[in-house]
């Protein structure tokens, strides 16, 4: 087994363990920390696939941004002193069945699709940029509009009644 393969299986194990911990731990703050670990290990998977750009973006947006917002939400909703919020997983079996179904579906897709003979050229960052402002410019802009809509909606819901 090559060092890359060993690295992949290690990261995969960590990813799986932390992801399970996210949904199974009762402590909400711990769940967010496990989520951070899971997101970072997802980034490491990108790194192992020679996609350093995606690794950095994953860290910047998810581990840096999303986790920050989540902790912010927990800290604002939970009282500073007093009882802590608990995470309960009543539908854990249904969730497991659903996850297994999705896994089988993805697995089937991966097994049947043709794999590239060798990895693409090292630096695809410039290609990515060209794709974003070229053929994918319209979907990219639409996503931005969607995000703005979500932002405006959130502000609308969060406004004080008066």
């Amino acid at each position: 087994m090559t060092a890359e393969a060993i690295g992949f299986w290690l990261v995969a194990a960590v990813l799986l363990a932390t992801s399970l911990a996210v949904v199974l731990t009762p402590n909400l703050f711990h769940a967010v920390l496990f989520l951070a670990a899971a997101l970072v290990s997802t980034g490491v998977v990108f790194l192992l696939l020679d996609a350093a750009f995606l690794f950095a973006v994953q860290l910047l947006l998810y581990a840096g941004g999303v986790i920050t917002i989540m902790v912010f939400a927990i800290m604002l909703t939970e009282q500073l002193v007093g009882e802590r919020l608990r995470q309960t997983s009543r539908w854990v079996i249904n969730g497991a069945i659903l996850a297994a179904a999705v896994f089988v579906g993805v697995l089937g897709f991966v097994v049947r699709s043709a794999r590239p003979a060798r990895p693409p050229a090292a630096d695809r960052t410039a290609d990515l940029a060209r794709a974003l402002v070229g053929p994918f410019a319209a979907p990219f802009e639409l996503l931005a509009v969607l995000l703005v809509a979500a932002l405006v909606g959130a502000i609308y819901f969060a406004r004080t009644e008066d």
Partner: peptide
């Protein structure tokens, strides 16, 4: 000397906040 060096720096230094929360 990664080809995304600056981005790597910014991304990794954003992780500092997790330790701070903890």
């Amino acid at each position: 000397d990664l080809n995304i060096g600056v981005l790597f720096f910014l991304a990794v230094s954003a992780l500092e906040i997790v330790g701070l929360f903890m």
